[in-house]
């Protein structure tokens, strides 16, 4: 059962005897997931993105160079 399901179950079954600890864990996991989702939507906390020049070099390395290799190979 994943955290989202656990949160739901914790909400529904949280008062049942003998399962309180498990559901407390489930609820805290779901809270942690929700906290992380909120945090990661903030620009300062996201990973640094590729820049335009990175995309240009990517195209050079993975499109233009292979084309050159294939052309050179076919000349022989």
């Amino acid at each position: 059962m994943n955290a989202e399901d656990r949160l739901h179950r914790a909400g529904v079954d949280g008062e049942l005897d003998g399962r309180a600890v498990l559901e407390h864990d489930a609820a805290s996991e779901a809270t942690e997931l929700a906290r992380r989702c909120s945090l990661i939507e903030e620009l300062d906390l996201q990973g640094l993105p590729l820049l335009r020049r990175d995309y240009v070099t990517l195209v050079v390395a993975t499109v233009l160079i292979p084309i050159v290799l294939i052309i050179v190979g076919n000349l022989k």
Partner: peptide
């Protein structure tokens, strides 16, 4: 030899575009 190197690089174009921006941004 040239085909092996070319194919290796072409395959990475799609992997990088599909995953690096999104997985890098959101972790």
């Amino acid at each position: 030899t040239l085909a092996v190197l070319a194919g290796s690089l072409i395959g990475m174009l799609f992997i990088v575009l599909a995953l690096l921006p999104v997985c890098g941004k959101y972790g």
